[in-house]
Design a protein around this nucleic acid. Structure first.
Lengths: 193, 193
DNA sequence: CTGATCATGTAAAAGGTTACATGATTGG
DNA sequence: CCAATCATGTAACCTTTTACATGATCAG
């Protein structure tokens, strides 16, 4: 089991759905799995090159007038094999880095207002995420209802909703005590004057 | 506002608590913020070197018998300034990559058993995380109760609990339908024989 | 006429992990 | 006696982002 980069698995998976160009892959990712996975051209094109050299994909060139040629990549049986191996393999624990929690941990080193602003910032990020999820669930998901992929796609959305909801709740709770904390300090200051 | 690497902020924050060696920093991180932040020696030592060159920290050498000398780093006023700037700065949106969701998205390309195993794997990871949180909350946190840092440290723990609980719930829900899905397919197979 | 979209890629830089090199002490 | 702990750091490697280079078309 050769340890291929995760980018290659993402690309193989998409190509297993249908043949695509590097450009298509980028656009497709942004419009579907973008909320939990992203890739840049600097990753996609070299990955396609490597995988072609390793016979996991083949390439066809489709000429166009005006626009540059499209390089269409197709997955090979060896590519599907590699994809299956990865899908069957056990999940490794992923390291996480949450910058806001680092700031919270050092919370006493800054004015409470700064920490409040940071938590509010996370809250806004998560709320706008939630709005997107709501929209996708109502207006985009129904069109896939009859595909066999539908329940799997829905489950990725559901994961996003669960985690985002949890983060929003934490932000609200945290803001409540931070503001209380702030109020107490302020009134103490006033008393001391 | 020069954009320093996040490692430097983590290190500055720890040094603002007390002077430490690179080794101490590594050990401290593992035993406190390890669940949302990790650093390797390959990051810490070069960061200390850079920051010393930039006068954000100073170094004292403490001789020991038997063991190698300890290089104790102390934060400077310029270092505290840099730390404050970061604490006050707005949070940037962080890109995320969740490998399990990538697998879920391609769920129809693998036997359901493989997907089930993956979700169970995540569930186990999250459950063992939750056990650690429970332990920390009951047996480690109380000793810090009177420190001004206490509520901030507790809030980082609470974040972990919220998100982990959400992920555990998602795993349970997802396993329920995956197993149902599997049962239906199996019985169909049996009928077709 | 200006900026977005279509379309390919490369190169440099940043960020991070793992392995290496060194070597005494301490606990099982 | 062997493995872990203490303690410093570097080097090679892998991954990822951002900037660059090129250039036509199309919508406002």
């Amino acid at each position: 089991m050769p340890r291929t980069s995760k980018t290659e698995y993402a690309v193989l998976g998409l190509l297993a759905m249908q043949p695509m160009s590097g450009y298509d892959i980028k656009t497709f990712i942004a419009g579907s799995i973008g909320f939990f996975w992203q890739e840049s051209y600097g990753q996609i094109y070299p990955a396609l090159k490597r995988m072609r050299a390793n016979r996991l994909v083949t390439r066809k060139i489709s000429k166009q007038k005006g626009h540059p040629d499209r390089h269409i990549y197709e997955i090979t049986p060896a590519g599907r094999e590699r994809l299956s191996e990865w899908l069957a393999a056990d999940l490794e624990a992923e390291p996480v880095r949450v910058e806001l929690l680092l700031k919270m941990f050092f919370g006493t080193m800054a004015p409470v207002e700064d920490i409040i602003r940071n938590v509010e910032c996370l809250l806004k990020q998560q709320q706008s995420r939630m709005k997107i999820f709501n929209n996708v669930r109502k207006h985009e998901m129904p069109q896939y209802q009859d595909l066999p992929e539908y329940p799997f796609w829905l489950s990725t959305l559901s994961f996003g909703e669960h985690v985002t909801r949890a983060r929003i709740r934490w932000c609200r709770e945290t803001l409540a005590w931070l503001k209380n904390h702030n109020r107490k300090k302020t009134s103490r200051k006033i008393r001391n004057q």
